[in-house]
């Protein structure tokens, strides 16, 4: 990074720390904070969409669709989410490979599950065995995002389902009295009004999502936990910057990072709640009028 870092052995004190914290591995590690933020930025809207679809399906007058929606919201009850994380990340991978196998290699006769092996034809492998490393990493991240979205989508579906039911019945009756169709009443009356009821639950879900991001490590993504372990472990004299086991310091940095993230989220969500409460026929809305 700095040119005076060329020979680490001669460095002392502050210069050593500055060079240590800006060496190549550390710069890569700083990027992994971006990975966490990217995961949050993608997962939040995608799981909201999953949740919306789930909640709408659970309200559907068509029975099979309703069962599907109810089933989706019910799967996460009673079972630790980490079980789902570990399950989906393999199950999705095998599911994708199986589908590609059916499409790409219809003539393949050998069984796919051979004892402890899952064998699909080479063309169906995901990612292809000759793909560059970056593709493998992107695919791993994609699986992680999808896993997060499925699990958190189920929770969002629970919240949105409740919020849709919390909108006063009279509002929908009024909409019908004005001659709106089912679809119109849903999109123009129900959806705009449900958000204030969903917000406490969704705020909570966001906080939980933030605190679930270190589980990326378990899904095989090189995230901040991976780097904290990698960089914190003791480094012998063969390394440019030898040091004893500093894991504790790296994990304290992560702790501070997450405390900051949750604090900022709290403040922002508080403001949104205030904003959405304007003009609502609730206690909070009344308080804002005065």
């Amino acid at each position: 990074m700095f040119e005076w870092c060329a020979d680490p052995d001669t460095l002392e004190g502050f210069a050593w720390v500055a060079c240590y914290l800006t060496n190549g591995k550390h710069l890569t590690a700083y990027m992994s904070f971006g990975t966490v933020m990217l995961l949050l930025a993608i997962t939040a809207p995608v799981s909201l969409a999953f949740g919306f679809a789930g909640a709408t399906a659970a309200r559907s007058p068509v029975a099979p669709l309703r069962w599907l929606g109810k089933g989706y919201t019910a799967i996460v009850r009673g079972v630790p989410d980490i079980v789902f994380f570990l399950f989906f990340v393999i199950a999705l991978d095998q599911g994708f490979e199986w589908m590609r196998h059916q499409v790409l290699c219809p003539d393949w006769t050998e069984p796919i599950r051979q004892g402890s092996d899952f064998v699909v034809c080479p063309a169906a492998k995901l990612p292809l065995s000759n793909a560059p490393q970056a593709v493998h990493e992107v695919y791993g991240f994609f699986l992680a995002v999808l896993t997060f979205a499925i699990v958190f989508g189920a929770f969002a579906a629970n919240i949105l389902f409740g919020a849709m039911r919390a909108v006063p019945r009279a509002q929908m009756e009024t909409a019908e009295a004005y001659g709106m169709s089912h679809r119109q009443a849903f999109w123009r009356v129900l959806i705009p009004q449900m958000w204030i009821f969903a917000l406490p639950g969704l705020s909570n879900l966001w906080m939980i999502l933030v605190k679930a991001t270190p589980l990326l490590f378990l899904l095989g993504v090189e995230d901040i936990v991976y780097w904290a372990r990698e960089l914190g472990g003791s480094k012998g004299p063969i390394f440019d910057y030898p040091h004893p086991d500093w894991s504790l310091w790296y994990f304290s940095a992560l702790l501070v990072f997450y405390l900051g993230l949750t604090r900022v989220s709290e403040v922002v969500l508080g403001r949104i709640t205030r904003k959405l409460s304007h003009g609502q026929a609730t206690v909070a809305g009344e308080a804002l009028r005065g």
């Binding site: 270190p214 936990v225 372990r229 702790l255 997450y258």
Partner: peptide
């Protein structure tokens, strides 16, 4: 305010 996962590591 912090993930349990990190608390365990720490």
């Amino acid at each position: 305010g912090s993930p349990l996962f990190i608390q365990f590591f720490f």
